[in-house]
């Protein structure tokens, strides 16, 4: 455990609370992609399957896993019930089947081992790297976002970005290297680069998030 990883995980946790707070304060899920949320639920359910048998890993890991699964399921539940009037299937249209199919293909081609758990783990890593695309696509179509939504996206993107120095740290200091997670994590962070740039140049300077 190192500082980068802790900060990354906290950023991940904070992002979920910002999203719930956004829905509560605006009484709406406008601007949030249901498709991205469903992809994240798939990511957590396939990666964190091991909560049922690895009680010994750490209480920290197990509790975080449970929180991620339950809070994302709760977010989806809220979006499909309480806040469903703000859902806009006309805007949230990214072809998610390609993302699931691509992640599935990579998982079957390059798992660390051919076991159900390892293939699903690899699938979850690749799927996570692109799960934000429906959300970013939606943002591009609307051309603007509420400030609280941009904070959510920043915290979510910062989580994987902070894992990169964590992986470097572990590689140099612990001799631990996980090529699948590292390559996918770098791709994931690159997908956020435009967003990070606009967040930095506009939102952090008090302006509204608008695409040029």
């Amino acid at each position: 455990m190192n500082l980068f990883r802790i900060l990354g995980d906290l950023s991940h946790l904070v992002s979920i609370f910002i999203l719930l707070q956004k829905m509560r304060s605006t009484r709406s899920c406008a601007g949030i992609s249901l498709r991205t949320q469903i992809l994240y639920l798939m990511v957590y359910c396939t990666r964190y399957l091991d909560i049922f048998w690895t009680f010994n890993a750490s209480l920290y890991n197990s509790s975080m896993k449970l929180v991620f699964i339950l809070s994302t399921a709760y977010t989806i539940y809220l979006m499909r019930t309480v806040y469903k009037t703000a859902l806009d299937p006309q805007i949230d249209t990214f072809a998610t089947y390609y993302l699931v199919g691509g992640a599935g293909l990579l998982a079957v081609l390059f798992p660390y081992k051919y076991t159900v758990y390892e293939v699903l783990w690899s699938f979850s890593i690749w799927l996570e790297s692109v799960a934000i695309l429906p959300q970013l696509f939606m943002l591009q179509r609307t051309g603007e976002a509420e400030t609280i939504t941009t904070h959510y996206l920043f915290a979510l993107g910062a989580y994987r970005a902070l894992y990169i120095p964590n992986w470097l740290y572990r590689w140099f200091l612990e001799g631990h290297f996980d090529p699948i997670a590292t390559v996918a994590g770098i791709i994931q962070t690159l997908l956020y680069s435009d967003f990070f740039y606009i967040y930095y140049t506009k939102v952090l300077k008090g302006k509204k998030f608008e695409l040029p």
Binding site: R5, D9, H12, R47, D50, T54, A57, S58, N61, M64, K65, F68, Y112, W121, Y163, N166, D178, A181
Partner: peptide, 10 residues
Amino acid sequence: VEEKKGHDEL
């Protein structure tokens, strides 16, 4: 050679 431990990150 030490066997690779399971996935220990989130």
